[in-house]
Write a protein that binds this DNA or RNA. Structure first.
Lengths: 352, 352
DNA sequence: CCCCATTCTGACAACGTTGTCCACCCTCTC
DNA sequence: GAGAGGGTGGACAACGTTGTCAGAATGGGG
């Protein structure tokens, strides 16, 4: 005649053996709600009762279960960040900046890397939505973000950074890639270059496309032809980038070798600086994105600098403004880039 | 005679206007549990019923509320990572590695930066515990982690990385800082140096203390005296580090200037490489931690390399082994460092 | 000495999901 | 045609918290 008749009960206490408010209440000899009031610092509890409750809390090692709280309150006080690679020196400070803003608003940050894979991005984002994050900051990898529309309609604030959303209107914080690239190429042209190469990221990535557009615009404005062998877009793995750079510098094509290169992002740049012609100062170089120690290389690397931390901060601030209720039309914030001449961009052409 | 008598109801639907399983069930004309079965891919639903439920799900834009699921199931499938600074090039790959392992186990990563502040670390960790993360990976900043004992007892798996827990037994994954530093200094001694300086992080940080110990051991083993003006520990801000380096190199003390430096981590190293005496190759340098482009500086920087990604991966793997039930005694994993000679450490002393 | 106002406290429902258990319906067999 | 048996579907409780509301206790004034 064992206790066969007792109602549903899990085999094991959840969460190890964590005490709940009920346990605290029993121990302190008060009601459940009184414990809740003490835990949340609500008024209306006599000092004596409060003390008893506090004692029970410490004695039992109680810690409020935020999962239950979240379920009840409907706010998670957490935001999601999805980017390409947390370890990329460009995105790491961006991520840190988002975290700081989140912290200032009492929110935690959940983040994940999409590895530049649209499907993985989607999975991550939807997992975050299932967690009911209050908002999302996304550096998009995919080419269609309409899957987010129901989520946004349901109240998940969403801000895109570095690249805009695809096939959808949404808040975005971007750098002026087109203008930056154009300025970088113009800089090279001003130093006498006429045959300039561009090595960039995958063409489906917005920034890569914009920077290519900037490159072409600067060339066209100077009345210079662009030989298609001078343009190489693709994954940023060192093998591919290095091969493209060496090919352009050797110049087997009819148009001849390039005398200068514009690199499309920090990953490309740090590979290209290893190419002998660049290291030996025979080919000029302007790199998109600043990077640590750029000024200590020989020659020091001229860059078009963005401010990743500022991108992250602006995006997070916009996100929290939305969370506080701002519901005007989607906004696109554009941040300027800054050309930092250091030497590698000022090398004159060696084959004039 | 308005509906004054109806029971408790929040003013506004939670989570925007998200549909729940109840809504889906009503629309599909089935029971609540059947929807749950479909959503979780449980068996026992006829294809026809499943189709009807799926249609209702898409029509309503339903997405399961993981907060409720978590509350019910007692597992959050998320782990917390607390480190000093997400943007530090040493910690970023570590963080990424933890994320990859978490992803492989279907868990999300919540992370926060402690900014090397023990109190902030504690707040973060406890917030994560309140969220009931399944486990924690911590790069500790504080000097007493006993506050974690109740949490660990309650079942939060915890692994420390890079530095051990203070005043507590716990799993830890570390680099062999002592041996690494000793090897670095021995390398300098082998190249003829007798007056070697050490510039490190705050002495309360375990790795800094260990590396200092390694430095002293190598000097002692070679029978070399250490003048206290050759040792400088403190925050890694560039101003402090640079001043200390310049002071040691100028050598106003009775013991004379140093002819070589050991730097205690990547932040210190990238500051010290800017000191003129180092850039001009008048002072030898061995840096703890490898860093990008170290081989392209002049002179190329000799380093004691750790593998941050491996540290992160080992820690996360250990964490998940714990989560899967391994409950043997706390384990300390130590990873070797690797001396990478590149030039800056092989410069002979200029004042013999 | 009673009554009312003012604190303080606690019972109860609800958040959205999952686990348990029972009822039903179909098909198959005798 | 009836009973057995397997396969589906649904009612209900429970996870741990917070919001509502009513009841209890206290104190002061008439």
């Amino acid at each position: 005649m064992a206790d066969t008749a007792r109602p549903t009960r899990p085999a094991r206490r959840r969460y190890g053996l964590r005490p709940t408010m009920k346990d605290v209440a029993a121990r302190a000899g008060v009601g459940l709600k009184t414990v809740s009031r003490v835990v949340n610092g609500e008024p209306g509890v006599t000092p004596d009762t409060e003390r008893r409750v506090q004692e029970a809390i410490t004695a039992l090692g109680f810690r409020r279960n935020d999962s239950a709280r979240i379920l009840r309150k409907g706010r998670t006080s957490s935001i999601g960040l999805v980017l390409e690679d947390l370890a990329d020196p460009f995105y790491a400070p961006l991520s840190r900046a988002v975290e700081e803003v989140a912290r200032a608003h009492g929110a935690l940050l959940i983040n994940g890397s999409s590895a530049e894979d649209g499907e993985r991005e989607r999975e991550l984002v939807l997992a975050l939505c299932a967690r009911r994050v209050d908002g999302l900051v996304i550096i998009p990898a995919g080419d269609d973000h309409r899957y987010l529309e129901p989520e946004i309609a349901a109240g998940v604030a969403t801000v895109f950074v570095d690249r805009p959303a695809a096939r959808m209107e949404a808040d975005a914080v971007l750098s002026r890639s087109f203008e930056g690239a154009r300025e970088g190429v113009a800089h090279l042209i001003a130093h006498g270059h006429r045959r300039i190469g561009f090595i960039g990221d995958l063409p489906r990535i917005h920034t890569a496309a914009e920077r290519l557009r900037g490159y072409r615009a600067a060339m066209a404005e100077a009345g210079l032809p662009v030989d298609e062998s001078w343009v190489a877009l693709g994954p940023t793995d060192p093998g591919r980038v290095r091969a493209d750079a060496e090919r352009m510098v050797a110049g087997p094509g009819a148009a001849g070798p390039v005398t200068a290169l514009l690199t499309g992002n920090n990953r490309v740049t740090v590979t290209v600086v290893r190419v002998p012609a660049v290291r030996e100062g025979r080919v000029a170089l302007v790199g998109f994105d600043d990077f640590e120690l750029a000024d200590l290389l020989t020659p020091p690397v001229t860059v078009i600098a963005q401010e990743p931390a500022l991108l992250g901060r602006k995006a997070a601030e916009l996100l929290f403004r939305r969370l506080e209720g701002a519901d005007d039309a989607p906004r696109r914030v554009e941040l300027p880039t800054r050309l930092v001449p250091r030497g590698s961009g000022e090398i004159p052409p060696s084959h004039p």
